[in-house]
């Protein structure tokens, strides 16, 4: 054993810090065995490709712009053709490029609002669970109040009061209404972690509450928070679609809900299946695939659900 200096050791220690990657790898091994999870992941990959591909059509020809690109030759809704793979809408815009843009919007809305609600929910849950007492009561009652509010209805009323909401306001509103369930789950996890002796051990060494929450409790609840994020994504996409369909979406963006609203408003509901079906199917599939990914992650995170038992 060669004698190493303290600094050398430390850098060696830093560089060998692949624990996270290793855990990811072993998690992936479990995930891979789950059929639902694989299907969900493949579907998500397709949607991601769609979202990424949404920038291409307008570059090819301005008439393919999902919002402003109107085919000069067509001013009404037509079925699929070589020129327009999925047909056009009532003023001659390309449905395929609208569908691609819709995927991008769905990802933006879903992931960003889920992320925001997870951040808020996790912090509130950890603080409430760790602090206990009055802080816990106040935070959890606030969560209850928000939780019982019908999200869609409140956003509708807000939209009616303040006029059209931009997509980012909608994202923010969804996030604001969806954190309480996360907070509850994280709080109960924190309550059980708080009683684990390693938290006592941290207290005995003099760690502050801040340190205990963010250094000791957070790494242990993060996997759960991530799992909840996939479920939050599902609900955020559905809420945005519902809002847009009801005519309260952001008029400046093309989302799948918005496309459905156009079908409905222009009376093509039963005349143009080529227009109605693609956004409808996409909404169902993307929520389904996030859900399937979530279920598979659940199995990775909860060792009790794993099929094999480890040796004691």
């Amino acid at each position: 054993m060669p004698v190493t200096s303290a600094e050398n050791t430390f850098s060696a220690y830093r560089s060998s810090r692949f624990h996270f990657l290793e855990r990811l790898k072993s998690g992936w091994l479990v995930y891979r065995e789950n059929l639902l999870g694989r299907i969900g992941l493949v579907l998500l990959a397709c949607f991601a490709c769609m979202a990424a591909g949404s920038f291409i059509p307008p570059l090819i020809d301005p008439i393919y712009h999902p919002m402003s690109g109107v085919d000069p030759l067509i001013s009404y809704s037509t079925g699929p053709s070589l020129r327009h793979w999925l047909g056009t809408d009532f003023i001659g815009r390309d449905i395929f490029s609208q569908l691609l843009t819709g995927a991008r919007i769905a990802f933006i809305v879903g992931v960003s609002s889920a992320f925001m609600s997870i951040v808020v929910g996790t912090i509130v849950g950890m603080v409430a669970g760790y602090a206990g007492g009055t802080t816990d009561t106040i935070l959890m009652r606030a969560a209850d109040v928000v939780m019982v509010m019908p999200t869609l209805l409140v956003i509708l009323i807000l939209a009616a009061l303040f006029g059209q909401l931009s997509i980012w306001i909608i994202v923010l509103l969804i996030a604001l209404f969806r954190w309480p369930a996360v907070a509850r789950v994280i709080r109960s996890q924190t309550l059980s972690l708080k009683r684990r002796p390693f938290v006592d051990a941290a207290r005995v060494t003099g760690a502050s509450c801040f340190r205990i929450i963010f250094r000791h409790i957070m790494p242990n609840v993060l996997p759960l928070a991530l799992l909840y994020m996939t479920f939050r994504v599902t609900s955020a996409i559905l809420i945005e679609a519902a809002l847009a369909f009801l005519g309260f979406g952001d008029p400046g963006t093309v989302s799948w809900g918005m496309m459905l609203q156009w079908v409905w408003k222009t009376g093509h509901m039963f005349q143009a299946p080529y227009w109605l079906l693609p956004p409808g199917i996409c909404i169902s599939l993307i929520t389904l695939s996030f859900y399937m990914v979530g279920r598979a992650m659940d199995e990775v995170l909860d060792p009790r659900l794993r099929k094999e038992k480890a040796l004691e």
């Binding site: 220690y13 002796p197 003099g206 000791h216």
Partner: peptide
Amino acid sequence: VQMIFQDPYQSLNPQLTIFDTVSEPLII
């Protein structure tokens, strides 16, 4: 004043390395 706990399977944070665990009191 320090304490050594009964259950070594529970008294170490599973997410921290041995170095991080042992050096934490020094950082605090």
